[in-house]
C-alpha cells in the first residue's frame, strides 16, 4: 500500500494548525512552548515530504538546521520560563501581566 505524498502534507498542515491554535488558546507557558515545537516539526515534515517529491536533498538538509535551532530555542525558552517562575511562582500566561498600557 502506498501513501500519497499529499497525505503527509495534509498531516503537516494539520499539526501546524493545532500548534498555532494551541498558542493562541492555551494559557500555560509550557504548553504554548510545546505548541511552538509542534509547529516547527510540522514544517520539518513538510520539508521532508517536498524533498522526496522534488528528489532534492536540500530540503532534508534544512531539517537538520531546524532541529538545531529548535534545540537552541528550547534551552533559551526554558531558561526564561524558569527565571520567571522563580520570581512569580507561576507559569500561567494570564498571571504575568505587569506590563500594560
Amino acid at each position: 500500500m502506498t501513501v500519497h505524498a499529499s497525505w503527509y502534507l495534509i498531516l503537516g498542515a494539520v499539526l501546524f494548525s493545532i500548534g498555532a491554535v494551541g498558542i493562541l488558546v492555551r494559557r500555560n507557558v509550557l504548553v504554548m512552548f510545546m505548541c511552538v515545537e509542534l509547529m516547527l516539526n510540522a514544517a520539518n515534515l513538510t520539508f521532508v515530504t517536498f524533498s522526496r517529491e522534488l528528489n532534492d536533498v536540500a530540503g532534508q538538509a534544512s531539517v537538520f538546521f531546524v532541529l538545531v535551532v529548535a534545540a537552541a530555542e528550547v534551552v533559551v525558552g526554558m531558561g526564561i520560563i524558569v527565571s520567571i517562575f522563580r520570581n512569580m511562582r507561576s507559569s500561567i500566561a494570564d498571571d504575568i501581566h505587569v506590563l500594560k498600557g
Partner: peptide, 26 residues
C-alpha cells in the same frame, strides 16, 4: 519581573512567528 515578562512575551511570540516563517519557507 517586568524584564522577565518582556522576555517571555518576546520569546513566545518570536518563536511563534519563526515557526510560521519556517512553514512559509517549506
Amino acid at each position: 519581573i517586568a524584564s522577565g515578562e518582556a522576555a517571555l512575551k518576546y520569546f513566545i511570540l518570536g518563536a511563534f512567528s519563526s515557526a510560521i516563517f519556517l512553514y512559509g519557507i517549506a
